[in-house]
Design a binder for these strands. Structure first.
Length: 579
DNA sequence: GGTCCGTTGGGCGC
DNA sequence: GCGCCCAACGGACC
């Protein structure tokens, strides 16, 4: 309750207690959670400005946090690299990072006592993710009981989310409900605050990283050093990590603020590219990202969104070209992020914890999805029999990243397009595998793609074949990620089931044996699903209409067509190939 | 209640 | 590469 009250303050600095009557003998602790950076970190600076005689930068490995729950070795590795980089950068300033292990609610108070902490600072978690909210509420309460001065700052987003209230018009006093409304509100905001510089050596009065402490609480070296309460036996993780051919041994995307800042500079170095950037026109079949590739750094907070905003602004100032505009421009991408955080925050204010669920989510329509574990597993494993979909899903597994449009294709395929499985299942899989997994963005995009919220034109459906054929006719992307198909002629690379048996044999692959037959027939099932979607929308309309009584719903006006047997494998009498 | 618009559809004809 | 139709969504705005 206390926490909610604190959100009322409409400034960047949203929590500040002054329990201490004196600031003598200040001992500071900055608690890193997300926000794994030194630049643009106002909470860190605020704590250092108290001139602490000792200062403890701390990260807590918390297996129940959104970041570590269901975390794959690849994500775990990224986190470790972020922590090691943070530690190194702090050591360069005469300090270091202390990495604690356990539930912050227990571990932090213990260390406050041991280290005699008087001041605690942290970056606030703004999207209202329930675990983080509960954790922080408890920590603030405990700190208050221990007479510790607590400072929290909103630096996860460009402005504190509470400040995005429309000032005039129909939506006055409310949060904007569409992206265009959000853009209008954003356009009327006060100029964005300039960035806080990273701390310097002078900030650390006492280089208290004494020798006897230096070996304590070191950042972990490999994923198996992390807490692992994920229902997966630790031995399995070790097997994966130790396997010779595991991509996890050699991740292509590395973590850390230092690298993030370098990549930011590099990706924005071509002002012409920045000025012409249009997200929908970037390609999802290039073998290296056609976008900035900065999303993992933003989601872990190695980069601040304001840092990126100003860097884009500077890049644009270097050219006289006409530049693209939000929502498709690079600034537009940051606005999407901001808007997604705002809707997540609003949904959770309305019903705590509802954002990544269907139930109770004010932005989500309840569509009666099927539950078919076999279909879900085929999708997760990249074994649907649609090469383009499988290539995307396998890139996700191997690299923890897929281009935005690839994500659209696989999300549409899993939900309204083909398999009719709940977006919650897909979102959960993305959360554990994406290096840039982000509570707010993930929920928003899954609702969008499944036509459960924000986007409703369900008759616009991605084809798992046609969508990419025009961009990558030779199927190079498929050949890379679905190697069993790599020898197939161009003609059959998107639709290998059409290849005559002798062509298949010559390419060293046989459909139904070494590569699955299509799990569903897209042409038929996508049409059927559109009519199921129309039914679901009609039911939604009835529910929303005045006088609706729960459980008294009348059946659909349009009788649902009897579902045809659309499994090609069943039609032609061959058992579906799995694993 | 009518009209326009919405970051990223597919398929066709030109 | 563009414009048009396909069938036809909800939300904002007038």
């Amino acid at each position: 309750m206390l926490w909610k009250f604190l959100f009322v303050v409409h400034t960047v600095k949203s929590i500040s207690f002054n329990m201490m009557s004196t600031t003598k003998n200040v001992v500071g602790m900055h608690w890193f959670r997300k926000g794994l950076r030194l630049h643009d970190n106002p909470a860190l600076i605020a704590c250092l400005e108290q001139e602490p005689k000792k200062f403890y930068p701390v990260y807590v490995l918390d297996g129940n946090s959104y970041q570590l729950l269901r975390c794959t070795p690849l994500r775990a590795n990224f986190l470790i690299e972020c922590l090691q980089d943070l530690d190194q950068n702090l050591r360069n300033l005469g300090s270091r990072l202390y990495v604690l292990n356990g539930d912050p609610v227990d571990v932090l108070p213990k260390m406050w006592k041991e280290w005699d902490i008087s001041h605690l600072s942290f970056e606030e978690d703004e999207s209202g993710e329930p675990y983080a909210l509960q954790r922080d509420e408890t920590i603030v309460q405990k700190a208050q009981d221990a007479m510790i001065n607590v400072t929290g700052f909103c630096s996860e987003t460009m402005y504190p989310l509470k400040s995005y209230v429309a000032g005039k018009g129909k939506g006055a006093g409310k949060y904007p409900g569409t992206m265009s409304a959000f853009q209008r509100v954003f356009g009327n905001m006060k100029p964005m605050q300039r960035l806080k510089s990273a701390p310097e050596k002078d900030h650390f009065l006492d280089n208290q990283d004494s020798k006897e402490m230096s070996e304590l609480f070191l950042p972990p070296r490999k994923p198996t050093d992390l807490p692992w309460p994920r229902g997966i036996p630790k031995s399995e993780i070790e097997d994966v990590w130790n396997a010779e051919d595991c991509k996890g041994l050699n991740p292509i995307v590395h973590g850390g603020e230092t690298l993030a800042l370098l990549l930011l500079e590099k990706s924005l170095s071509d002002a012409k590219w920045v000025a012409n950037f249009e997200k929908p026109k970037t390609s999802c079949t290039t073998l290296t990202p056609s976008t900035t590739g900065l999303s993992p750094y933003l989601s872990w907070g190695c980069l601040s969104s304001r840092q990126v905003w100003f860097a884009v602004e500077e890049a644009l100032a270097r050219t006289s070209l006409n530049c693209t505009k939000p929502p498709v421009s690079l600034h537009g991408q940051l606005l999407w992020r901001e808007y997604n955080y705002l809707t997540a925050f609003d949904a959770n204010n309305h019903q705590p914890g509802s954002w990544n669920k269907i139930q109770g989510n004010k932005y989500c329509r309840d569509i009666p999805w099927d539950t078919d574990q076999e279909m879900l597993e085929s999708w997760k494993d990249g074994m649907t029999g649609y090469p383009w979909i499988d290539a995307c899903m396998r890139q996700l597994k191997a690299e923890g990243w897929i281009h935005h449009l690839g994500r659209h294709a696989v999300a549409c395929f899993l939900t309204r397009g083909d398999l009719w499985q709940s977006w919650e299942k897909g979102a959960s899989h993305f959360e554990s595998h994406l290096l840039d997994a982000d509570y707010a963005l993930n929920g928003f995009n899954w609702m969008w793609l499944s036509c459960s919220g924000f986007f409703y034109q369900y008759f616009r459906c991605y084809s798992p074949v046609a969508f990419q054929k025009k961009n990558d006719p030779n199927g190079n992307y498929i050949r890379k990620y679905v190697p069993e198909l790599k020898e197939l002629p161009k003609k059959y690379i998107y639709e290998p089931w059409d290849a005559p048996l002798d062509v298949q044999r010559k390419a060293g692959v046989v459909m139904g044996k070494s590569y699955p037959l299509p799990i569903v027939e897209h042409k038929t099932i996508s049409k059927e699903n559109m009519s199921r979607m129309a039914d679901a929308y009609a039911a939604h309309k009835r529910k929303e209409s005045p006088g609706y009584v729960e459980g008294n719903d009348i059946p659909s006006v349009k009788p649902k067509k009897k579902q045809k047997n659309t499994l090609i494998s069943q039609q032609i009498g061959i058992k579906r190939y799995l694993k």
